[in-house]
Simulated scan of single mutants.
Amino acid sequence: MNKLYSFLGLIQKAGKLSSGDDTVELDIKKNMVKLLIISEDASENTKKKFEHMASSRKINFVFFGNKYDLGAAIGKSPRSILAIKDSGFAKAFTDKASNIINGGECIVKG
């Protein structure tokens, strides 16, 4: 699990990650998002909103981690929503997350 958080930090440094409701929503509307990460402790409204946006635009999404750890991983305040904007990074994150699914910590949908 720590490897996934470290990987998010790497993606942030590469400039291929956006975070926060407004920024991510804008990136979704611009068709820039390859993978959406929704924190497991996001509000039900936030989960429904972004799950619907991702589903309607055929964007894969995952429920992963909590907003405090996600924010810390990218050097920011707590974040409920992250968006990976590079298909290579999105695939790599999904592949890494798939190894954790057996433990029930990450579920990839899309």
Rank of each mutant, 00 (worst) to 15 (best):
A90Y: 01
A90V: 07
E105G: 13
G103M: 11
G103L: 14
I100G: 00
A97V: 04
K91C: 00
A97S: 12
T94C: 04
G104E: 00
A92D: 05
A97R: 06
G103I: 10
F89D: 04
N99H: 12
I84W: 06
S87W: 09
I107K: 15
A83E: 02
K96C: 04
F93Q: 07
A83L: 09
L82N: 01
F89L: 03
F93M: 13
E105P: 00
I107F: 11
A83Q: 10
C106P: 00
L82T: 01
I81V: 09
N99R: 15
N102P: 00
A97M: 06
I84D: 05
I107E: 10
A92C: 07
I101G: 01
R79Q: 15
G104Q: 06
E105F: 09
L82K: 13
V108N: 01
I101A: 12
A83G: 15
S87D: 09
I100M: 06
D95L: 11
V108H: 08
I81P: 00
D95K: 13
I100K: 12
F89P: 05
S98C: 01
D95W: 11
I107T: 05
S98N: 14
K96L: 15
G103Q: 14
K85I: 01
R79I: 02
I81S: 04
R79P: 00
N102Y: 11
N102F: 09
T94L: 05
N102G: 14
D86S: 09
K96H: 09
A90S: 11
D86C: 03
A90E: 00
F93K: 10
R79L: 06
G104W: 05
A90R: 12
A92N: 12
T94D: 04
K96M: 15
S98A: 11
R79M: 08
S80C: 14
T94Y: 05
S87Q: 12
A83W: 05
S98K: 13
D86I: 03
E105W: 08
S87R: 10
E105T: 02
R79Y: 03
S80K: 15
G88I: 13
G104F: 01
I81F: 08
G104I: 02
L82I: 04
V108M: 09
I100N: 01
A90G: 03
I100C: 04
V108W: 07
V108L: 13
S87T: 08
F93V: 02
N99C: 01
V108K: 11
N99E: 09
A97Q: 03
G103R: 15
D86Q: 06
K85S: 05
I100Y: 10
A83H: 13
D86N: 14
G103P: 01
K91F: 07
L82A: 03
N102E: 06
R79V: 01
I101M: 07
T94S: 14
A97K: 08
I84M: 04
I81H: 06
K85L: 14
T94V: 08
A90H: 02
S98L: 07
L82P: 02
I81N: 02
N102H: 10
N99V: 10
K96N: 08
K96R: 12
I101F: 02
I84R: 11
A90W: 03
